[in-house]
Design a protein around this nucleic acid. Structure first.
Lengths: 227, 227
DNA sequence: AATGATTAGTGTAAAAACAACACTTATTTG
DNA sequence: CAAATAAGTGTTGTTTTTACACTAATCATT
């Protein structure tokens, strides 16, 4: 019996991924958006997306789209959910899985971004996006913030060794709110896998600041983290 | 220009839904599983699934599968995520979105279930499931429990008017752990949208117990709920 | 009528977590 | 040597969470 025939009577659909690419810089997050210079919805703003290819997992498609646009590889991406309304894309039916990523706003291939007519837009200045992309962004933000509260998130955007001020800025950007410095440091001090390296940074401040790193040997999925 | 042609060069995929149907009864949750009497993976255990049809949203496909199996309509279902590994179904490539639902284990169409060769299995006695269905169940449980901690969940499984003991049993089943009675009642007392009706249940206990109901007019998405 | 069984209903106190808050220190620059 | 800058540090009050045990009402049994 030919196993390829079990499902042949069922319909097939275009499957896409849409990437919510958050860019971190001191002061807040931005989103990498595309001003569409192609149909459909030419001239409007949208997330960066792409179609899943034969023989490619949906996760891999998301990674490919991210790499094509930014040149970055091996970036943590997480699926938010799939969006499957019939008319979500008015052109033709497409089911799309949304993924988010968080990257350093200064570490991507500017040429590639320009070639795709993509721009960084601050989170609090977002234009209206096509289709259900506004919803995708809202969902992704909520998932990412939820995660950031209970797992170290985005530490890979900082240098290998970082100051607590840098770490706090990262968290303030992700959460979109200010954090009390003393309370923040108290909480970090409880996590033994974020450890002082003994090195001192002399570039970011006059006084100098202790450098820390995340010790991957001490960190596991069950390690406690609470901001 | 024919809008139907924008995407025509991209591949298409079978799109399925898999339903994690939790059944509530005093004492714990069960899962409605299918002992497959068809290929592929005949004889093995799996979630109840189905293919998305032309002109049908993915959400609607999940609702249809639930209705076909249980006879139940208008049940809250929530998507967990989409699963898109290339080889996840060894027969042929299928992308699947997982949805969970929580229903009353005594309120479904037993004939339909029998016709589908489906059975209720206690959560702590689950067999190994085919493909990535174990992962789907784990993910769904985690999403549902997360939700139950911050939103009233499953109250529709109780009678219109219910006792606090019933509500506590529901929550103990969902969370899979015992809850302190006094602390539980204290927390419920803080939610003004769960209100005493003034009626007394005389069936479930000798003493009789005050009946409560969820007042939908007082309840909104932003209402506080914390177990 | 009294006893036993069953489930409903109730409060307190200790511990832990969280939130608010301001000054001193080290260093560089002018 | 004064000014500027960012790092670093504790305490206190408030809120939240947890642990814990007895009385009340009713029905069934004898």
């Amino acid at each position: 019996m030919n196993t390829k025939s079990y499902y042949s009577s069922y319909p097939k659909f275009h499957m896409a991924v849409d990437c919510i690419i958050f860019g971190f810089e001191e002061g807040g997050l931005s989103l990498l958006l595309q001003k569409r210079n192609f149909e459909p919805a030419m001239g409007e703003w949208s997330l960066m997306g792409g179609f899943v290819e034969e023989g490619e997992s949906v996760d891999d498609a998301a990674r490919r789209v991210l790499t094509n646009l930014t040149g970055l590889k091996d970036i943590y991406m997480r699926q938010v959910k799939a969006y499957g309304e019939v008319e979500r894309d008015p052109g033709e039916r497409v089911i799309s899985a949304a993924y988010y990523a968080l990257i350093d706003i200064n570490k991507q291939d500017k040429e590639l971004i320009k070639a795709h007519n993509a721009f960084w837009v601050k989170l609090d200045e977002l234009p209206h996006l096509i289709f259900d992309h506004d919803q995708m962004v809202a969902d992704a933000l909520s998932v990412m913030r939820e995660k950031a509260l209970s797992k170290p998130t985005g530490i890979n955007l900082l240098p290998e060794e970082f100051t607590l001020t840098q770490l706090q800025s990262l968290y303030e950007a992700i959460l979109g709110e200010e954090i009390d410095k003393r309370n923040f440091r108290k909480r970090i001090a409880e996590m033994d896998y974020i450890e002082k390296t003994g090195h001192i940074d002399k570039l970011l401040s006059r006084r100098g600041a202790a450098l820390y790193r995340l010790n991957p040997e001490k960190y596991s999925k069950d390690s406690k983290f609470k901001i």
